[in-house]
Amino acid sequence: MHIGYVQIPVGIAGPPLRTLFFRWRHECFVRRWDNQSSCSFRFVNATTAAELKFFIEDPMNFETLSDVFNKSSRFVRLQNIQCAIAGKSIHEIEGRGKSVVCEAIIKEEVVKNVLKIEVAALVELNMLKNRTCSAMDGVLGGFSAHASNIVSIVSIATGHDPSQNFESSRSNIRMEDVNDSKDLHISVTMPSIKVGTVGGGTQLSSQSACLNLLGVIGANREAPGSNARLLATIVAGSVLAGELSLMSATSAGQLVNSNMKYNRSSKDVT
Rank of each mutant, 00 (worst) to 15 (best):
S73I: 10
G200P: 14
V119S: 02
S66M: 07
C39R: 11
T64Q: 08
I217C: 03
H2C: 06
D58R: 04
F54V: 10
R74T: 14
G225E: 13
A223S: 11
G141P: 03
A219M: 10
N70A: 08
L65W: 00
K107T: 03
W24E: 10
I105N: 05
E27I: 01
V101A: 11
V154S: 02
N172E: 06
R74C: 12
I217F: 08
S99L: 07
G196D: 15
K71G: 03
L230A: 15
S251F: 01
E124C: 01
D137S: 15
E63W: 02
M190G: 15
M260E: 07
R42D: 05
K261M: 11
M1A: 14
I81T: 10
K88T: 07
I93S: 03
L231F: 06
W33I: 07
F55V: 05
R74L: 13
R31F: 02
K116F: 01
V269C: 11
Q36F: 04
S134M: 09
A86C: 09
L122C: 01
E57V: 07
Q207V: 07
S168V: 14
F55A: 12
A145I: 04
M260P: 00
S89T: 09
V239W: 07
V139R: 15
E118S: 04
E243Y: 11
D177T: 12
G201E: 11
F21K: 05
A147M: 08
Q254P: 00
V188F: 07
V111G: 04
S37A: 15
E167I: 13
G95F: 04
E27W: 01
T47M: 05
A236K: 01
C210N: 13
F41E: 04
F22P: 02
L244K: 01
L204S: 08
V10P: 02
N227M: 11
E124I: 00
L125E: 08
